[in-house]
């Protein structure tokens, strides 16, 4: 069979492994993003990562390392500003979003001679994941799962009712900033694999679909990891069969799944 044949290639095995890691972290962190309505903040953070990539090139360091530093800096900045000012967060996110992209483009234009593949950072290429990236993804996935397991109760309290968490003297500011940093780490870890645009889809669509069928945050996370696996591996095979780009196929499959869940839960007809 054709499918069995493709499984024999190392690059395809790597792609499947990358899909597994992406599904795990996106399912868990994406659940927080969806229940706390942080989709636009996550969009801002992930697009700011593009600025980090450009600055990385300009500084002559690994662009992904540049993206890590810059994105965590942006996450901290948003977290602190959100706490200290009454500035409309939506406007702030819009500014970060656009400025991040602009910084990336200007930085890369200043790098003499060599123009890297910008398209690759926007859409990623899951079929070109090097083995070194896989071990980084494995490590970060374990880190994210460990942090969430350890702080689950508190993160739930803060994402559910921030004000009440404050009355109970939980470290709300610290936990909110931590959550933004976890989003930043997730986004950057997946940039080369699924790209800035797909990472937002993988963060939100499986979690939003899972939410329709679950009553607990824990089960929402598990279901959205499973859905992420179905969408990403399904998209991979489908893209191979149809000979179309894998990232876009995964997005469209996830969108179809979400649309299907809306129809099934009859939300359109209420």
């Amino acid at each position: 069979m054709m499918e069995a044949g493709i499984l024999g290639y190392i690059f395809f095995q790597n792609a499947l492994l990358a899909a597994v890691f992406a599904s795990i972290v996106c399912g868990i962190i994406g659940s927080y993003v969806v229940v706390k309505q942080m989709v636009s903040i996550s969009g801002g953070i992930s697009h700011a990562a593009f600025g980090g990539v450009g600055l990385g090139y300009l500084a002559g360091i690994n662009p992904i390392a540049g993206a890590f530093l810059f994105t965590i800096f942006v996450a901290l900045g948003i977290g602190i500003l959100k706490d200290k000012t009454s500035q409309n967060l939506d406007t702030l996110v819009g500014a970060v979003w656009a400025a991040g992209m602009a910084i990336g483009i200007i930085s890369i234009s200043l790098v003499p001679g060599y123009t890297p593949d910008l398209f690759g950072y926007l859409f990623g290429n899951i079929l070109l994941v090097p083995a070194s990236d896989l071990s980084m993804m494995a490590g970060l996935s374990i880190l994210i799962v460990a942090v969430v397991l350890m702080l689950f109760t508190q993160l739930q309290a803060v994402t559910f009712d921030e004000e009440y968490a404050r009355v109970m003297n939980l470290p709300v500011t610290w936990l909110s900033i931590l959550l933004l940093v976890l989003i930043a780490v997730t986004v950057v870890m997946l940039i080369r694999v699924v790209g800035i645009i797909l990472v937002i889809a993988l963060l939100t669509l499986p979690a939003a679909t899972a939410r329709k069928f679950t009553t607990k945050l824990q089960s929402m996370m598990v279901v959205s990891v499973l859905l992420g696996l179905v969408f990403s591996t399904g998209g991979l095979f489908l893209s191979y069969l149809l000979d179309v780009p894998s990232g876009a196929t995964i997005i469209l499959l996830a969108t179809a799944g979400f649309a299907g869940s809306l129809l099934v839960s009859r939300e359109f007809f209420k």
Binding site: V35, Q154, A157, Y164, V167, R211, T215, K216, L217
Partner: peptide, 18 residues
């Protein structure tokens, strides 16, 4: 948000966190 995926018991027990 009342659509937050949390059960009655989980929400009520969170009042013990302090």
């Amino acid at each position: 948000d009342f659509r937050y995926p949390i059960t009655v018991r989980e929400m009520v027990i969170s009042g013990r966190l302090s």
